[in-house]
Nucleic acid binder design. Structure first.
Lengths: 367, 367
DNA sequence: CTGAAAGCGCTTACAG
DNA sequence: CTGAAAGCGCTTACAG
């Protein structure tokens, strides 16, 4: 019966971390042989099976873990991809990140997540460069030009996700809201609606191209269909859905007011309200119900996003689902492709279609 | 007027990455001096201001970014902390991660996020060790013993978050559900309820200590208050709230059935239903409303978690809010403390109180 | 104040 | 098949 204790007592330098050198010493081989075996170059190097066994055994006995950092210094490849988020509390971005992470892991990369504010962004950029991240995913509304400049100099691929305005560098992966918007209006028309109002964003940043894009789509689609949008049938809300840090305050008042202004419209209330985001739609449902209106019997509500709150609300919300996970996945796939085949930094757009999910907040108009 | 073009033409090796050596060459100094200045040891080393200027300028001109990987190899500190999640689609864990990330960044660490399944967990552990992560946060229901073993050998601090059963290694940060549960029952009693039912977990993993803990708390609190819980006043649901991957299917049927069994109870329906999680509460609201019951006029509903869906539902949900963000923050704070002051791997528990958030799904019982 | 030198743990030609 | 050697980019005593 072998005495494990004695076996362990074989003279091996036991101080400090377990390095390839110690594995080599234990196996009675050179460091190079150890690396070759451990990195799967055994066949290529024609190392005899018995030798391989010795290496593997020594590594296992010592609990050896190659130092990926040292390897990276040598090879110049960190195997790490960065993901910078600024609105990190917002549920959809989580799904996007998860989609990207799954894709990265499938490709053998590891994901570094960083949050940024206007105060910390420069510091985060520095960290990304110093850590020699191989590529960067961005979901950030800050001014990204300083980053693009550094990335360009370093030849680092950058992909933005759910970015609402065109970018001067790299790939932009975003949702094609037009598809869902069109489907939603088609459904409302099929149900028999014609007096359709819109609750839009009241935020002022990136006014026309960005945050008001959905309002534009709505107006265009209504116009295409020859449906009038009376003055005052577009209202605005600017509800903060997530605060920074621990104290999250939900102040729905602007959205309640935006709903009220539609319900009280002098030309009569709409039979359906289309909302630029789910939060607005869900608060609109609350506001309607509080006034005794039934959804969808008295009024239909449609949202945009497909938050988890959408299927859990009463009634469950009909909404244009943004392809959050797929956007992340596609962004990462493109990034990795750039890493493998060479990255073209000139701007390129990829749009992923949204799609309508019909639940119970839409129905035929009565009266 | 200085000619920038000519200035740039100073002979500097322009091939390959910008290293400290190149900065030194450009500044006409030694590499050591460069490192000293760049790492803030200029005062300590009594390097004259003019020399510092030369270093800084050369670094800036060259766009030098220190290689953090190489530094880590030398110092043995990666500055990276890992966060492994397995239920990565679940909204609350995102908030926990964000809380942890904020704390890590405040402390100068960088966060690596990894997802794990039973198939990939071993591989993820290997990656964590190879990347020389300094510590690990875990939000994973898999068997963690192999990881604890490696972490112990490497002297790596590990903290688990929202773990429902005691762990053999490291710190466990979890929510103290008892506080919120107690407050919820107090509120229901104050409103005048006495016939209170419970929708509990129908999942079978970790039965008694873990997933049924909230049911236990409910029963204990009811008993403490001398309130009977008729047979059949506890029902079970096993609804999948998030699938893996792209195809998320929400099958609420078990939860609808669990609600129905309470509403149809032979001893009469309860005036309030307490639910082990918000998803159950929100589906219960849907089920009640579909049967023509008004919430809270006919029946009160209370949840557990405070998902974003809770404030957006109709009516907004009264719920025991779990301190998701704070759990992450505390976990990271403890981890960093362990890194600084030495980590004690023997098991330790930290509980963070939950708290009731009163919204509109609870009210006085009528009739 | 500044520079030459050793070393972190790894990989990769290059000899034999 | 295996080993000695150079080098990745950095930091850190140690001289001067």
């Amino acid at each position: 019966m072998p005495n494990r204790r004695e076996d362990d007592a074989v003279p091996v330098p036991s101080t400090g971390p377990v390095t390839a050198a110690k594995v080599a010493a234990r196996a009675g081989l050179s460091r190079a042989t150890v690396t070759h075996v451990l990195n799967g170059r055994a066949a290529e190097m024609q190392i005899r099976p018995e030798t391989q066994q010795r290496v593997l055994e020594a590594a296992r006995e010592l609990g050896y873990r190659a130092n990926a950092l040292a390897r990276s210094v040598r090879t110049g490849k960190s195997g790490m991809i960065g993901y910078i988020v600024d609105d990190e509390h917002y549920e959809p971005y989580w799904h996007t990140l998860v989609g990207a992470m799954a894709e990265a892991e499938k490709e053998g990369f590891t994901l570094k997540v960083l949050s940024a504010t206007s105060e910390t962004f420069a510091e985060r950029i520095r960290q990304c460069m110093e850590l020699r991240l191989e590529g960067l995913l961005l979901r950030v509304v800050l001014d990204k030009r300083p980053l693009y400049e550094e990335a360009n100099r370093a030849g680092m691929p950058v992909v933005t996700v759910d970015e609402w305005v065109a970018q001067p560098y790299g790939i932009r992966v975003s949702a094609d809201d037009a598809v869902g918007c069109c489907e939603a209006l088609t459904q409302l028309l099929d149900l028999g609606h014609s007096r359709i109002a819109f609750i839009s964003s009241g935020f002022e940043s990136q006014p026309t191209e960005g945050i008001l894009a959905r309002e534009g789509l709505f107006l265009r689609e209504m116009d295409n269909r020859g449906l009038p949008v009376p003055k005052g049938y577009v209202s605005r809300e600017r509800m903060e859905v997530y605060g920074r840090g621990a104290n999250v305050v939900h102040d729905a008042s602007t959205c309640v007011a935006a709903t009220a202004s539609l319900l009280d419209h002098p030309a009569g209330r709409p039979t359906a309200i289309f909302c630029w985001r789910d939060e607005a739609a869900l608060v609109a449902i609350q506001a309607c119900q509080r006034r005794g209106l039934r959804v969808p019997d008295d009024i239909s509500i449609v949202g945009f996003s497909d938050l988890s709150a959408a299927w859990l609300s009463s009634p469950p919300l009909t909404t244009c689902a943004s392809p959050w996970g797929e956007m992340g996945q596609t962004a990462m796939r493109e990034l990795v492709k750039g890493l493998k085949e060479g990255f073209d930094p000139s701007p390129r757009e990829i749009q992923i279609p949204s799609g309508l999910i019909i639940r119970e907040s839409t129905g035929m108009p009565h009266g």
